[in-house]
């Protein structure tokens, strides 16, 4: 599977997200410097790099989660389907419905499994009636590859699930709003190897419907799940290209150093 993916080229070359000259500042700290990148649709794109290199920060720019941090300023253009998401007319609420996000630590709400998944559709008014909502929840849970484990206890609290189940629940919750892009911020860092394998399998499935962007600190994971990889270092986008090429034949010496374990 691995080797196959390494040689596999992108199925679809539509550009979903275009970022140009993006700068991010946390107060006086220049966290992201001049990042330009084009992310393809129906592709898994991995952001890798050492801790604090800005990969998560950049990810959070794509659905404007950085807006919730007072001291954070973003400059430059980020466009989804050609529309500038930092345009004044864009409501981050609508944007985030389109660009879902899964976080590092599983964060189910202290509600039932059903309510966790139904939360997004409810606030966005996606369901016409209760039966419709039931459908959406079931579809999302199936897509999150967790339906079989929880279908008998949809009323149980989401916080009672195991770590891996919680993260898959969160993924199901994110896909329930029918996003076009799914951002994943180190989704497996809090999970054990078995749960990680399950989530990775799921990511591969999700690629068929969404443009998936995943931040990971594990190079193996990036190699396993992604088609394209971007390497960040000290706030700069050092190298971006086919995953196979980045891992086997990096252009930049910094990328090579990181991949071979000399920096990180």
């Amino acid at each position: 599977m691995n080797t196959m993916r390494l040689t596999e080229s992108a199925v679809d070359t539509d550009i979903k997200i275009t970022a140009k000259d993006v700068q991010v500042y946390y107060g006086d700290n220049h966290a992201i410097k001049d990042v330009s990148v084009e992310i393809q649709d129906k592709t898994v794109t991995a952001f890798i790099g050492p801790s604090g290199c800005g990969k998560s920060t950049f990810l959070r720019c794509i659905n404007r989660m950085n807006d919730t941090i007072d001291v954070c300023r973003v400059q430059g253009d980020i466009k989804i389907d050609g529309e500038d998401i930092y345009d004044k007319r864009v409501d981050p609420v609508q944007l985030r419905a389109k660009v879902g996000m899964v976080f590092q630590k599983p964060n189910p709400f202290p509600k039932s499994i059903y309510d966790n998944v139904a939360y997004g559709p409810r606030i966005h008014g996606l369901a016409k009636n209760k039966a419709d909502l039931d459908d959406i929840v079931e579809r999302a849970l199936r897509r999150g590859a967790i339906w079989n484990e929880v279908k008998d206890r949809l009323d149980a609290p989401g916080t009672g699930l195991s770590g891996g189940q919680q993260q898959r629940l969160c993924i199901a919750r994110a896909v329930a709003t029918e996003p076009e892009v799914l951002l994943m911020d180190e989704p497996c860092s809090a999970l054990d190897p078995i749960a990680t394998a399950q989530v990775e399998e799921l990511i591969d499935e999700l690629r068929k419907s969404y443009s998936v962007v995943i931040v990971t600190h594990s190079m193996q994971q990036a190699a396993r799940v992604s088609q394209r990889t971007a390497f960040f270092h000290l706030g700069n986008l050092v190298e971006y290209g086919e995953t196979g090429q980045i891992f086997t034949n990096p252009v930049d010496p910094r990328t090579e150093n990181y991949i071979t374990g000399r920096i990180g």
């Binding site: 609420v93 944007l95 976080f103 189910p108 709400f109 202290p110 606030i123």
Partner: peptide, 27 residues
């Protein structure tokens, strides 16, 4: 209430007040 709860809700496209009323306050 952990920030992760708020992030989870905001990340789904909830407004801050929806986040407060439906996630933070119940928690």
């Amino acid at each position: 209430v952990p920030q992760a709860m708020r992030d989870g809700s905001l990340g789904l496209g909830a407004t801050p007040s929806e986040t407060i009323r439906q996630v933070v306050l119940p928690a």
